[in-house]
Structure formats: structure tokens, C-alpha cells
Amino acid sequence: MKFCVCIKQVPDVQAAVQTGRMVLNAYDASAVEEALVLNAENGDPVDLVLVGPSTATETIRKALAMGATDATHLVAEDGGEADSHSIAALLASHFEGHEYDVILTGKQSQDSDAGLAGAMLAERLSLPYATNAVGLAVEGNKLVVTRQGDSGQEIIALETPCLVTCSNDMNNPRIPALKGIMAAKRKQIATEHVAAPSARTAHSGTVDPPGREPGIKLEGEPEDIVADLVRRLDTEAGVL
């Protein structure tokens, strides 16, 4: 099947201090991995599309190095105001000119945790969709999705063309090998300059979440610290 994966460049949220280092959204990396696995035998394309500033090229190259076929970079220099709404609108106009059997997105952006752009894009393109996928399988012209629901896993068969948003619990994305990295360097990336359509939400800054009261560390003989804990849970915390 012909896949296209929507990928986003995000700050490295794991870093203790933000240094401006940017990475491929982990959920999108899992989407790329899954498409590559599903198409490994048949050689069908796994294309990419990214909306972001020109400096996001490095993230596109990283996903190409994993083995993706072709990439389109929708260059939006000032993406600061964009929300999932504006991104979905831009992606929708891209897909109006490109036919795919399956569009994959991440289930959410690691930095904003919005989790909206995928379903928004599906609705704009009138595609059947499933979210929070932890497994994908091709069955004739259908895509069988295992999604993590509220209680248990739901197995849903989607007619193609369709869209699926992927969880990182689906797989462990490959680390690109040197050969892939070299090949990705030579690949032509189609670029197109776009202006982000207006967002529906506005951002007015971030604060640190309220901190927790400092806790108590209990060290020593296991018998003693367990007795101490049970007493504290009962008398101090009142949770027993």
C-alpha cells in the first residue's frame, strides 16, 4: 500500500534543560517504522510530509535515513502561532494533490500533547480513521488496526483510503544505518512555502506546575522502614 507519514519536529522533551535541540516526534517515528515494515516486501512507497521552518530539514533527513521514499517540506517559517487546526488545514491541502492508500500520523505531538491533528485531517479529507494504534496489518484492500481503547484493545478494519494515528507502543523505531544516512543526504526534498492559516487557540505563556511538598526518604533495615511507612500512611497521610 502507498503510505504517507506526517512528521513533526519537536524539542527534545526528555532533556533536563532545553538547549534548542530538536528531534523527530517519537510517535511519528513509530508511524514511519510501521509503514516501512508493512511495505518491506512489496516495495511500495512510504512518503513523508512535514510542516515547519527550513531548519526542520534535518528531521526530514532523519526519517528518510530510516528508509522512507520521498519527502515534502511545507516550509512555514513562523510556526509559533500554529495549532493542530492550522496544521491539519495545511496538510489537507497537500493531500488534495497527492493520492495515498494510508495516511499515518502520530497520536500526539510530544511537546504539546494535543492529539488532534490526525482526526482533524481525516475529517477534512473525509477519510475513515482510527486513533491510538498499537498494531497495523494489511488485509487485501483493508487496514486492520489494533487500537488501545479505554478498556482493552479494539480491533477495527478500515477501508482504504484511510488515516491512522500511531502510538509509540506499536514498535521500536530503527536507528538509521550509515548507508541510509548517506542515501538520505542525496535525496531531493520537495519544498513549498506556505503561510500557516490562522489558529483557533492562542498561547499566552507557560509556567512551572505547582511543586510537590518535599517528601521523606526512608533508608535502613527493610523491617524498620516498612514499619515506619505503615505508621506514616496511617497517622500522617490518613490513607489506610
Binding site: 500533547d113 492562542a202 498561547h203 506546575p209
Partner: peptide
């Protein structure tokens, strides 16, 4: 709303 793996709280409005 929590962002950056809940390391920050963002003020957002519409």
C-alpha cells in the same frame, strides 16, 4: 494544560 511531558503548564485560550 500540561505540555512538555507535563514539565510545564501552558495557558491557552480561544
Amino acid at each position: 494544560r500540561p505540555v512538555m511531558a507535563a514539565k510545564k503548564l501552558a495557558s491557552t485560550s480561544s
